[in-house]
Computed example of a mutant assay.
Amino acid sequence: MLLRNQMDTTSYQQKYFRPSCLPTLNLRFNNGDFFLPYYEKTHDQIQVPKELTRTPEDTLLNYFSILREAENMGGRSCGSIGQALIPFPLAYNFLSKNYQIKLSYEDYLNLFAGVGHTNLIKLCQVPDGKRGLRFFYEIETIEGFEGKRAEYFGYSYGFIQLIHEEGGYRISDLQQHQEDFLCAPYHGWSHDGESVIEVKYGNWCKLIQVIYPTIKSGYVKNICFHGRDGADHCLMFITLTNGTDIEIAQFRKVGIEKWKQIKMKPEEECLTEKGD
């Protein structure tokens, strides 16, 4: 099998060094008048309008559109940025009641320390069996660091869980991971979906009989193979801005059966010793 570290090194690395050119998705509240009712209000004085949370997609697009205008950089020499801290109390109320119990408003605000602007560039629902509503997202932020006058672009991704609460959809859990732009080009296989399949399911599990051509649709990548167990397997990945493929779902079917979502862990099921 041809692994990515056997490919041309220069062309391989370049896909990790290029930044995103995707359009911004969170553009719903460009008019500053939207925030007028929330001036000088604390988070416990705010009710989220029900029309902002009618569907899961509405909740997330409106949540990130509000955060787009939020800034928590501790002041910049050029003056105010966006709506400064005003959007944060409103955004906090997009969290479910139980999530707010786990995450205080002060801790929530600290999550955005150094962030001056947020663009949502990827959003899609993730197959999640019977566990509820789960979405993948990726954001592009403009950040400033103490002691430096310049701002920098940062990229993060994660998963968001939603529940229906108080006549609308609320965020019940949110994970966020920062992307790096140096490990992937120099330590490649674990960042590349095709190589992940070859190593984990081929070399480790000895499961692959035939790998089918990769199917790409935008930033979603499906890699399928026929296994020595007589079943077809298909893994879904999302490609991040830094070029890394993130696995989001696994499926398996035998013959004409319907696809069933599974969760196989090659590291635990196929390797008898760590480091093999």
Score class of each variant (00 low, 15 high):
E268K: 08
G255S: 08
M236N: 09
Q176C: 05
K206G: 05
D173I: 00
P185M: 08
I139L: 03
T55M: 01
S104G: 14
N242Y: 05
C234D: 07
E57Q: 15
S104P: 10
S156Y: 13
K102T: 14
V199Q: 13
Q47T: 15
N242C: 10
D192Q: 10
F35E: 00
Y212L: 02
Y152A: 00
F225A: 00
W259V: 01
Q83Y: 07
D180A: 06
I86T: 14
G275K: 08
K41T: 02
R4C: 15
Q83D: 12
N93T: 04
A113Y: 11
F35M: 01
E267I: 06
D232N: 15
Q13W: 09
L36A: 14
Q161T: 10
C78K: 12
P56F: 01
V115I: 15
K206T: 07
G154I: 00
G193V: 10
T9S: 12
A150Q: 09
A150C: 04
K253G: 07
L271H: 06
A84L: 02
R28V: 00
R134T: 13
Y63K: 01
A150L: 02
K265P: 04
L174Y: 11
W189C: 07
G230T: 10
E194T: 09
F29W: 08
E40H: 10
H226D: 05
K265Q: 13
V126C: 02
R4M: 08
K15I: 13
N93Y: 04
A84G: 08
M1C: 10
